[in-house]
Simulated assay, not measured.
Amino acid sequence: MTRVVFLLVPQLHLLDLAGPAQVFSTAADLGHGYEIGYVAEQEDVPSAQGVTLRADTSWPALTADDLVVVPGWRSPTLGGSGALTPDTLQRLAAHHAAGGTVASVCSGADALGRAGLLDGRRCTTHHEVQDELAARYPRASVVPDVLYVVDDRVVTSAGIASGIDLALHLVAVRHGPSAAARIARSMVVYARRNGDERQASAMLRHRAHLVDAVHRVQDLIDTRFTNKLSLSDLSTAAGVSERTLTRRFTAATGLTPLRYQQELRLERAEHLISHGATSESAALAVGFQDARMLRRLRARA
């Protein structure tokens, strides 16, 4: 039996907690032997989403096989937020010193930093606070724009939904990739993502604009990027000429429609390759006729 203890901080984000908790709960249902507990410095813990949670104020006895997870909390900055007593921070440090694993989701990395667990280690957090984390803990090496980082039993993740990826990774390490895949299927989530995948997908990185016609074309490309799409078809969907679409699309996203489609294909192909696919099979799966174009795009990237 491995114990997974979540340390709850006031104003914690529910998904930071619920995502990993669901992974380990599902793993327990599948017979992998996890016992989940929740501790806090007060019995009633308000969440950022308005639901009050109940936790134990006494820590269970932990062994080196056990995991402590600190979910993130709502705050525009890390400084002055996520209040924890020195005794609680010392418990985090002591568990790691005894051979245990300590993990964080989103701003929970700041609690690990205050416990001294980020010094001399690679780590990450949500992209909105990663610069502040680096400034607060200059002895840490903050890795930007990745989903999670593992360094000497200190595991940090980007936040919100990436906590699911972190938990699935830990299950895969202990029980194998097939166990993690089975849990992902049970949870109806996308296949486990690698830690070094970017926090924002290509579909999200180029959506920070207010041009309705371009959004409509992006919606079409997003759902059919593995198909051959002509500029004529895209301009018809947008209700503008091909020249106008190219001009507006490039101004809004920094890419032509073709380059945007290629970026989606490349991102999906990289994911398939990272999970064991060959370049040839990945290229065919995303719509290329062969692997030559994929190799050129990967070399350019």
Rank of each mutant, 00 (worst) to 15 (best):
Y190I: 04
Q289H: 10
D145Q: 04
R136S: 03
P177A: 14
L220R: 15
A167W: 03
L53T: 07
R185Y: 07
H96Y: 00
A109T: 04
F249N: 01
L17C: 01
F249A: 04
A251Q: 11
A291P: 00
Y190C: 03
A18H: 03
N194T: 03
M1V: 13
A299I: 10
V105Q: 11
E267M: 04
D196N: 15
D233A: 15
Y190S: 12
G79H: 00
R298S: 13
S157Y: 06
A283E: 02
V188L: 15
F24T: 09
D233C: 03
V173S: 06
E267S: 01
E128A: 14
E280N: 07
A299F: 13
S47R: 02
S201D: 05
Y38N: 09
A140K: 07
L255T: 00
A115V: 12
R3N: 10
Y260C: 05
L14P: 01
D219P: 02
R136K: 10
Q199L: 00
R216V: 13
S201V: 02
T57G: 10
T246W: 09
V69M: 14
T101E: 02
A158C: 09
G276S: 06
R193P: 03
H169F: 13
A98V: 05
V39H: 07
T26K: 12
D233R: 13
V45G: 08
G176Y: 13
G99R: 00
S107C: 05
Q199R: 07
T244A: 14
A282I: 13
M1W: 06
D16V: 01
V155M: 04
D222T: 02
D165C: 08
G72N: 11
I36D: 03
S58F: 05
G80Q: 12
L245A: 13
R243W: 06
S157T: 10
G80S: 11
L30M: 15
R153W: 02
T250F: 09
R121M: 04
N194D: 15
A277R: 14
I221Q: 07
V155Y: 12
L294Y: 11
C123F: 08
L62H: 12
Q262S: 08
F249H: 02
S81D: 12
R193W: 08
R193S: 14
G159K: 04
D131H: 03
D110R: 05
V51I: 15
A64L: 04
F288A: 10
C123E: 08
W73T: 09
S178E: 15
P76G: 13
E270Q: 15
I160Q: 03
V146Y: 06
D119I: 01
R247K: 12
G120Y: 08
G80F: 11
D219Q: 10
V150P: 02
G50A: 11
T226N: 03
V129E: 00
G159T: 04
M203S: 10
G116K: 06
G176M: 13
V189I: 15
A115K: 01
R182H: 12
S279N: 11
E132D: 10
T2M: 11
A48K: 06
F225K: 04
L92P: 13
V217F: 10
I160S: 02
D290E: 03
V154P: 06
R259P: 01
L220C: 08
V23F: 07
S186P: 00
Y137E: 05
V286M: 04
L229G: 05
S75D: 14
S235H: 12
E197T: 11
R216C: 07
Y260L: 02
A135E: 15
V171Y: 07
A61Y: 05
L7T: 03
G31L: 13
Y38C: 11
L92S: 13
